[in-house]
Design a protein around this nucleic acid. Structure first.
Lengths: 331, 331
DNA sequence: TCTAATTTGTGCGTATGTATG
DNA sequence: GCATACATACGCACAAATTAG
């Protein structure tokens, strides 16, 4: 930033000229990582601008990760990479195989000039809160999976609501945020209904469900479906290791699925005849294993694409990402 | 506290830099319990600070119980127990199912007071470079997967080498960094050797290998093994869709594995008799699918635990994480 | 210990031009 | 022509953090 005439009354808005000027200074090496920028007041005086105009320019550079601010000290060059136009903060619950498709679809649909940073809260409220508060103002968009945590809206309201997007699980407290979510209760009910011809032979319905990590809606849908039809049903946290004839398992965690399949081999029980299995979340291997596992699953690639599309078109809405039943030999 | 440059005009407030410097000195043993700190005026002169800036740093350390002040004498180290919340920067190549075990083991072994942030470079050198440079100075440790990228040491040398740990793939240029790595060439050779009794019936050896994403060592090990034994072998980027009797596939990408298994069903070819399959990287489902897939695999949980242990014990070394052959019905 | 200067962060009010319907 | 929304630009006031004297 050298001459006064850097900011003129041309067609370009003043704050954009200022951004351009700083980008140019970084590109030709006048500003390097760690360098201090002139203070808001200094820039305001030098270029005869309003303080808020300078602030707007600096804020945009900040959300692109190019500069950072420290209260009481000043603005500093954080990154010399000025090609990144958008930065997206993604907060997932935990790392697992399903996140792969979701993340790849999201990243792919957003384009190469967008930087996607990913974090995990591991169902820990404090971690959830700290990560969001530590990173507010540093990103253009916030894509968040509140999962089954409570009181997350209080934290998320600290972010500008038009920058916030919710993934996968959306509660009442999130009504004012854009979202792509699963309707777990409905999906379980309709999924089980569609499978009815194949499930009638099973007499004991067992849902393997972990309250701390898994969506309540699945449990509610299961209970509602079973009680309406007066089925014998129970809910267990974990597969207990022994299969009984005519049991039907609804399995969320793949470790339980594997344990069941192993028990089937050991006990010489045929999955799909003696014992039924419905697994949540489809993966390619489930198409093959044991001649196919029946799944109820949403399409995570579509979910990622939809969210990316929402970000790109700025059309903020709440969309259900539908699940479907995929019938295979395990029923 | 050794050099003047400990306090610079960077983004960090000066009093925080001073606190950090004293914490570091305690952590690496330069300051021990009972040691006298330099006087306020001495520190002020040495680092060209205001007396109150030094006082602010000392007061905060005092309120945390790390130092104590005795009127008319000075400041003394009271406790070496600085419960600093550690921050670990983890840079992976891409998100996939194997990363789950690795990440969980690393995070679990480091403990709850450690924040682990994860990033992905997607085999893109520019992304690799920008992520490291943008996040230098912000973390206590840097755990990095250079994967098959070249000239990564140039970038990593910008970080303090005692804070850097390499995962999975380690090249000659990384000799001065601590590492937990796989010896892909050796692992493939010994794995194939151990499987020899079961592989002799196959006449065409095919490695499905993608140069851009996968470790060169695997290709080298395969070529060396096959040429030493004068086997008919070839390397393809992708499974071409049709199986021939007496082919043996070595598969790295699970999508290829699934495609092969599907072709087996369609073509009515029995995997493990007509066609052999060895898959890289074990997952629980591979124990089950098609009555078991033979794998050559390292234990990613162990890898994560070893790296965490190295960080916690400050024993910096280069360790091979062994792979082993797991024989199943697919041979 | 108190005061002061500088700096960022935030909220409120105002005004203008442009695009939309 | 009119109403509305949005982006741009300016001014002011106060809070909180940093640093110095």
């Amino acid at each position: 930033m050298t001459a006064k005439k850097l900011i003129d009354s041309s067609a370009q808005p003043k704050y954009k000229q200022l951004i351009q000027g700083i980008e140019d200074a970084i590109q030709n090496g006048d500003l390097k990582q760690g360098d201090k920028l002139p203070s808001l007041n200094a820039v305001k005086m030098r270029y005869q601008l309003s303080r808020d105009t300078v602030l707007m320019a600096f804020n945009q550079l900040k959300s692109r990760g190019i500069i950072e601010s420290i209260v009481g000290k000043g603005y500093y060059v954080k990154s010399e990479n000025i090609d990144v136009k958008k930065r997206v903060f993604v907060l997932f619950d935990e790392l697992n195989a399903f996140k792969e498709d979701l993340y790849n679809a999201l990243k792919g649909s957003l384009g190469a000039d967008t930087q996607v940073d990913i974090f995990f809260h591991h169902f820990n409220y404090q971690v959830f809160k700290d990560l969001i508060l530590d990173n507010q103002n540093s990103y253009n968009y916030y894509v968040i999976m509140p999962a089954n945590l409570d009181n997350t809206a209080v934290v998320m309201d600290r972010l500008p609501s038009e920058k916030v997007f919710i993934l996968d699980q959306c509660h009442e407290e999130h009504q004012h945020f854009a979202a792509v979510y699963q309707n777990f209760k409905k999906d379980v009910e309709t999924g089980l209904q569609q499978a009815e011809i194949h499930t009638s032979k099973y007499k004991e319905w067992i849902l393997l469900f972990d309250d701390t990590r898994q969506p309540k809606g699945i449990k509610e849908g299961f209970e509602s479906y079973c009680s309406q039809r007066k089925l014998n049903y129970s809910i267990q946290a974990k597969f207990e290791g022994i299969l009984q004839i005519s049991e039907l398992y609804i399995v969320l965690d793949d470790r339980d699925l594997i344990a069941i399949l192993k028990s089937g081999i050991e006990q010489q029980i045929v999955i799909g005849e003696d014992v039924g299995v419905i697994s949540y979340n489809d993966t390619p291997l489930k198409e093959i294993v044991n001649r196919g596992i029946t799944t109820i699953s949403t399409d995570f690639s579509v979910m990622g694409e939809r969210l990316a599309h929402m970000i790109l078109t700025k059309k903020r809405e709440q969309v259900e990402n539908p699940s479907r039943l995929i019938l295979r030999q395990s029923l």
